[in-house]
Amino acid sequence: MNPMIPNPYIIQKVKKETQDVFTVELIPAEGEQKFSFGAGQFNMLYIFGTGEVPISISGDPNKSDVLIHTTRTVGTVTKAMSKLKTGDTIGVRGPYGSTWPVKEAIGNDVVIIAGGIGLAPLRTVIYEILRERESYGRIAILYGTRTPEDILFKRELEKLKSRLDLDVQVTVDRAARGWNGNVGVVTTLIPRARFDPKNTTAMICGPEIMMKYSISELMKSGLSAEKIFLSMERNMKCGVGFCGHCQYGPEFICKDGPVFSYKKIKHLFGKREI
């Protein structure tokens, strides 16, 4: 199989999540292939005549009959993607990249910290750990976004919030009266979450600066660098290590990442223009 050739997938459903975020559900155009992937992996999605972009998978890793991507319209390709309809074709290459340490975190408390669209790749982790809820200690899901209107997966979050075995906290950067939830950046939720810093795995995804602040807050509360994981983003053209675009020091985000332990990239993280 040539990794540079996209495979055709048919859009089963397009769902508008928020004003600028949407979810597409895809099924293979040919045959009954299953699509297996790990939590945290991404695909290169090709829109006919427009181009290709890396998008992380946001669906349940245990459901291999449908491929789910949630993304935000930020560029020409995602804009074109948002206009596609049920029955249209998308080219898919993947899945590529590393996965969240779902297995390694067994027995630990888990803190999931998501900022904005960063909740999409972390939703795969939530599916995974809830499937084996009893294998983990306390679980905190801390999610920050811009306004109450920008909250992703609202109904799912509400459902999760009602569970007694999860600590789900949502915060927004700004809100008018009527919002009775938290206001403030996501890092302010970290000191309020309950976890045993000696025995906790943290997984963070969001804008790089938000991850930076989150890491410093987690370290302040006693977590060590090897127990903090984050998902990095860089320009990507091929997804398989040939094009060189996604290099981050010695790492290729496409194949060594996108999920890294903080310990591994600590010497680069926050360095300017690396």
């Binding site: 915060t171 700004r174 809100a175 008018a176 009266r177 919002w179 009775n180 939830g181 938290n182 206001v183 403030g184 302010t188 000191p191 309020r192």
Partner: peptide, 23 residues
Amino acid sequence: GKVSLEIYTPEYGPVAIQTVGEG
């Protein structure tokens, strides 16, 4: 509990700036 800190603006009414709570 939880307390919302708000600034009142004539155009938009009260705007929440931050929430504080336990601890």
